Simulated scan of single mutants.
Amino acid sequence: MSSGASDMTHHVDGKATPARLRGVPTRLLAMVAAHADRVVTEGLAREEARKWHYAVLVTLEELGPASQAELSRRTGIYRSDVVAVINELAGRGLVERAPDPADRRRNVITLTPEGRDTLRRLDALLAELQDEVLAPLTGAERDRLIELLTRLADHHARSHGRDA
């Protein structure tokens, strides 16, 4: 291999990757997203949690009690799946489900003190996991990455009629 060829490739997992592939942003996003997803999923599993658990707990803490339908919209969890997530959280005493006084046909989900404690632990864990995934970036680069990814997410959510 000539020195010019080696300048045009980078190594991923010990394998040479053509420069043209390394220049395809959507491919790079997918690769990094898959790695980040694996790191976060495995990290949360060590705490007997899942990403959807975290999303529901954060949503309830930041936006207050909500119906199951509202939680589905706010978190992006399918309505058919949000019930199972709430059942799991309620079974662990992290949320409470009670009839809505304004409409007894629907339930209102509320974060419990145990849920807040669990959320604090998960926040700390996720901070560690973010540091692991974003290790090669400086603080300013991380902020810029968040800004760019948010802009992309917002754009695509608007073009598909959803909130990011």
Rank of each mutant, 00 (worst) to 15 (best):
I77F: 04
A102M: 08
R74W: 08
S67I: 06
A69R: 13
G76N: 08
G76H: 09
V85N: 01
G64V: 06
R73G: 11
P101T: 08
E62Y: 00
A69G: 10
G91S: 10
P65W: 06
V58K: 03
V56K: 00
V85G: 00
R73P: 02
P99C: 03
V85W: 04
A84G: 13
L63G: 06
E70W: 04
A69P: 03
Q68W: 09
E70L: 14
A55E: 07
A55Y: 08
L63I: 03
P65G: 14
P101F: 10
A55W: 06
P99F: 07
P65Y: 05
I86M: 13
A98D: 12
V82R: 01
E88Y: 07
L71H: 04
E62W: 00
E70V: 14
V95T: 12
R92E: 10
L63Q: 12
Q68V: 15
R74M: 11
R73N: 14
P65M: 11
A66N: 01
L94P: 03
A55L: 13
V82H: 01
R74L: 15
R79K: 14
V85L: 03
E88R: 11
L94E: 01
A66Q: 03
P99E: 04
I77P: 02
G64D: 04
D81K: 09
L71Y: 05
T59H: 05
Y54E: 03
D100I: 10
L57R: 02
Y54C: 02
P101H: 07
L71R: 01
L60F: 06
I86V: 15
G93C: 14
G64W: 04
R97L: 14
S67E: 00
S80V: 12
I86F: 10
V82K: 02
R97I: 12
R92N: 08
G91F: 11
V83M: 05
E88H: 11
S80Y: 09
A66H: 03
R73V: 15
G64R: 01
A69D: 13
R92A: 13
E61A: 15
L89Y: 04
A66Y: 03
E96C: 07
A90P: 06
G91K: 05
E62A: 13
L94G: 01
G76E: 03
V82P: 01
G64Y: 06
P99Q: 02
T59W: 00
E96G: 07
L71W: 03
E70G: 12
T59Y: 06
